[in-house]
C-alpha cells in the first residue's frame, strides 16, 4: 500500500515527506512501546504510534521503518521533526484514534505480520 493511499484512508496530514508519498509500505505496526517495535516490526513497515518524541525516529531508523503516522492529531516537536528529516523518515498525523486507524488500514488490505529476528 502506498503512503498516498494511507494518507487518504486515515485522512492524514503530511508533516514531512510530501515527495515520498509514492513509497510502498509492506505492513502496519501499531505500538506506543518502542521495545516492541524493535522486537517485531519488519523493514518498510508503517508505524502508528501515539508517542511523539525523538526515540520514535531512532527506533524507526534502527528497524528500517520509513514512515510514521501519529494518531489522534498528535504532532511531534521541532527536534523530532528535524531528526526525521535527517533520517529520511516520512511523518504523517491523523485525527483518528489508534483503534480506528488500525481497523481502517487492515480493512483496506494493509498486512500485519509478526516476525522475530532470529
Amino acid at each position: 500500500m502506498t503512503l498516498k493511499e494511507i494518507k487518504k484512508i486515515l485522512k492524514a496530514e503530511v508533516i514531512i515527506g510530501e515527495d515520498y508519498l509514492s513509497m510502498e509500505v509492506k505492513m502496519g505496526c501499531a505500538s506506543d512501546l518502542m521495545s516492541d517495535v524493535l522486537a517485531y516490526a519488519k523493514p518498510d513497515a508503517l508505524l502508528l504510534t501515539g508517542l511523539t518524541n525523538s526515540q520514535v525516529i531512532r527506533t524507526a531508523e534502527i528497524v528500517d521503518i520509513r514512515a510514521v503516522c501519529f494518531i489522534r492529531g498528535k504532532k511531534p516537536d521541532e527536534r523530532t521533526i528535524k531528526l526525521a528529516i535527517e533520517k529520511n523518515i516520512v511523518l504523517l498525523t491523523t485525527q483518528m484514534p489508534m483503534f480506528e486507524s488500525c481497523g481502517r488500514l487492515y480493512k483496506n488490505g494493509l498486512a500485519s505480520r509478526l516476525v522475530k529476528h532470529k
Binding site: L33, M34, N53, Q55
Partner: peptide, 11 residues
C-alpha cells in the same frame, strides 16, 4: 518515552 517495559534485555 516508549521504553522501560522490561523488553530491553529479552530483545
Amino acid at each position: 518515552l516508549g521504553f522501560g517495559a522490561g523488553m530491553g534485555l529479552p530483545n
